[in-house]
């Protein structure tokens, strides 16, 4: 029982990381019209930059700080250089994001050596505490705290700032938003800047647990996709609920039935959800009132 509870707690922490990646996917999808799966590898590449700075003798926190600034710039570049200039349809853009995904993985192999994977120093303290026989790791608790702070920040932005309100407007009705003077390209640039920073954060929290290498984001990207679908691909809040469901379920499955089944169990949950609720848990069917 104690073991199951411990697994559930760490599953929630992992699920919130999954949820954050799913949140980025859905946030970009809603504000720019394209779910950019390259964000996974954007986070991986940025984590490598921090790692290189740290390896050259810089402290981990200053390196992470510089990495965060680089990530913001990197996000903007991805939008301005790769996505914005060519226009084209959604399929066209989608193909470009896939190309970016592959390009970043290849560039990580070229620039950061073939001795991968690397051990990445943990940003968070090790160890933990026991509460009633349940082991709570500090790193899990801090991860939960970090995600909660970020979610609160986003909710505050959506609710209290003009830019946040415009994000919601573009997400719901892009055409009407333009009629109200919303500059969609400016918003997309900001969205990618935020996405770049969040992707680095995910990389920094994930790398110490599972080593740093060019393919490190692939499993969590699949989990995040499943979480986004379970949450209903258009619901921002649903991504975190979907993430927790996937995180806890896959942690339980890998603990009791072996890690071979983790990916399969995530996809099974996704398919089951779709069979029961075709729009996901929080998604809404498109309804138009006359």
């Amino acid at each position: 029982m104690g073991l199951a509870l411990s697994v559930i707690v760490s599953g929630i922490a992992f699920g919130l990381l999954i949820g954050m990646l799913a949140f980025i996917l859905v946030f970009l999808y809603k504000t720019t019209g394209v779910a950019n799966f390259a964000v996974g590898n954007i986070g991986m590449f940025e984590t490598f930059i921090v790692y290189e700075l740290w390896k050259d003798g810089m402290g981990l926190w200053p390196a992470a700080g510089i990495g965060l600034v680089c990530s913001a710039v990197f996000g903007v570049l991805v939008y301005q250089v790769v996505l914005r200039p060519f226009g084209g349809g959604q399929a066209n853009t989608l193909v470009r994001t896939v190309a970016l995904f592959l390009l970043l993985a290849a560039m990580a192999d070229v620039f950061f050596g073939r001795d991968q994977p690397y051990h990445f120093p943990s940003v968070l303290p090790g160890g933990g505490t026991k509460v009633g026989g349940v082991l709570l790791r500090w790193s899990d608790l801090i991860t939960v705290g970090i995600v909660l702070v970020i979610v609160t920040g986003f909710v505050a932005m959506f609710r209290y700032t003009r830019t946040g309100l415009q994000f919601l407007a573009v997400a719901q009705r892009p055409e009407t938003a333009r009629l109200l003077g919303v500059r969609a390209q400016r918003l997309s640039t900001i969205a990618y800047m935020l996405a770049g920073c969040l992707a680095l954060l995910i990389g920094l929290l994930l790398a110490p647990k599972q080593l740093l290498f060019s393919q490190m984001m692939n499993p969590i990207l699949l989990f995040a996709f499943a979480a986004a679908v379970v949450g209903g691909f258009t619901s921002l809040a649903g991504t975190f609920v979907g993430g927790i469901i996937i995180g806890v379920a896959t942690d339980l499955v890998s603990t009791y039935w072996g890690s071979d089944l983790t990916l399969a169990s995530a996809l099974a949950i996704m398919l089951l959800t779709l069979a029961v609720r075709p729009n996901g848990l929080f998604g809404t069917a498109q309804v138009r009132r006359l």
Binding site: R162, L165, Q166, L168, A169, Q172, R173, E175, T176, A177, L179, L180, V182, R288
Partner: peptide, 19 residues
């Protein structure tokens, strides 16, 4: 616009502020 362009998930006040 045609169909009014109301943001259904936002409050009335938020809709108005966007104007």
């Amino acid at each position: 616009p045609e169909g009014r362009g109301i943001f259904a998930d936002l409050t009335v006040e938020e809709n108005i502020r966007l104007g």
